[in-house]
């Protein structure tokens, strides 16, 4: 812009142009600063409310951002995450409960948004799985221990003595 305006030069024009450019820069700077201030102001009323922000944070820590799927809605910088945070903020302001807000997101994006899946028929294995595996593991362990003990008691020749004799004769073992 400056160049097309100022290329046709006579000394006088050049002088005017130089000051015009200077003014333009100053203006751009002031306007730019003004705009960023305006942007900051726009978010202020919500961001200034620490109670809302804290609730937003705790809530969105457990919500998945669908764009960057391993990020939370709290930490993601994706556009959609920002929009959803805005939406959640407004709902908090509107008096919605955490559960209502979760329902709102699940209705649109599915259970996938919840990092803590609800206990339902199709998630029951997910919730009980670890406990089931522990029980299974302990049961197997107990069974193995008991069996070994029984085998030691019942026919000592088969177990311990075998090993000992192998050690003594040096002809291999069970290893």
């Amino acid at each position: 812009m400056h160049r097309t305006l100022c290329d046709r030069s006579s000394v006088a024009v050049a002088h005017i142009c130089a000051s015009a450019v200077a003014v333009a820069y100053v203006l751009a700077f002031v306007l730019g600063a003004g705009m960023s201030a305006a942007e900051a102001k726009e978010a202020a009323p919500l961001a200034n409310d620490p109670v809302t922000e804290r609730r937003l944070m705790t809530l969105s820590e457990e919500l998945r951002c669908l764009v960057c799927q391993n990020e939370t809605l709290a930490s993601s910088r994706a556009d959609l995450a920002e929009d959803l945070r805005r939406e959640i903020r407004e709902q908090i302001k509107g008096g919605a409960s955490d559960e209502q807000i979760r329902d709102y997101l699940v209705a649109r994006y599915g259970e996938f948004v919840l990092y803590r899946p609800r206990v339902k028929l199709n998630t029951i294995l997910l919730w009980t799985g670890p406990a089931l595996f522990i029980i299974l593991g302990v049961a197997l362990l107990l069974r193995a221990v008991r069996r070994r003990r029984l085998s030691l008691v019942d026919d000592p020749d088969d177990g311990l003595l075998d090993d000992i004799s192998a050690d003594v004769t040096g002809k291999g073992g069970h290893a």
């Binding site: 669908l66 764009v67 556009d79 959609l80 929009d83 959803l84 939406e87 649109r108 994006y109 599915g110």
Partner: peptide, 13 residues
């Protein structure tokens, strides 16, 4: 412009 209807439709990309 603000993507509100998009959110209602579950648009994520």
């Amino acid at each position: 412009p603000d993507g509100r209807v998009g959110i209602d439709y579950g648009v994520y990309g």
